[in-house]
Amino acid sequence: MLAINPNILSRFLNSISQFVIILSVFLICVAGVLIFFLENDYYQGISFKIMFIHVPAAWLSLMFFFIMGTSSIIGIVFKSPTAFTIARSLSPIGLLMSILVIITGSIWGNLTWGTYWVWDARLTSMLILAFIYLGHNLLLFSFEHFQKADFAASILAIIGLVNLPIVKFSVDWWTTLHQGSSVFKIGGPSLTTDYLITLLIGFFALFLLCFYWFASIFYIIIENRKIERAKLFND
């Protein structure tokens, strides 16, 4: 990542994006059919099926923040424009995923718990993550020179990394209304195999869709900078 020229990475991402979106649409169709034909949960009935959007979106919002944070560290330490641009293009996608988590979680919560929102540790830390994403997005557009914006937003992303273990382990450290982890837990996943496979297919489908968005945003940012530079040169 240090030695990669952003222009070369941009061209590479643009060349594979067609393939990624086709695979993603295919996997979304497969996941949709699987979710439709899956048996309902014995306790929650059909409402648990919202999990197959909620959980992948939650994993992705955490994963993207982790990638954003680490590439911000690399960007600041090694002054790497590629790392900064990766963080910049992941930011809106992560914001979208965290909003998706909160909306699907609220619907699920109203169907099962009997409330849209409570201030327990998991829900609150997830809301904080969404607000850090929002702040990161806004910081990226609040400076005249994008280098300054990248630096400021990177500091926020690095500080925000502290929140990731809190979101992940909040259900273990404190008592919460939110249930514990089903997949990454001691003693193996507490789902039946057909649920787990559907969940993983749903995750890869959403991941590839997000990767397509990431590749597109990365490409657009690099192309825009080329145009800006050309304008500057012509003046």
Binding site: L38, E39, N40, D41, Y42, Y43, Q44, F48, M51, T112, W113, G114, T115, V118, L177, Q179, G180, S181, S182, K185, S190, L191, T192, D194, Y195
Partner: peptide, 17 residues
């Protein structure tokens, strides 16, 4: 004043049970 249902993290169909 408020009652909430807390479900656990185990999901399985009736047939598995």
């Amino acid at each position: 004043e408020i009652v909430l249902a807390k479900h656990d993290e185990n999901y399985m169909p009736q047939s598995a049970i």
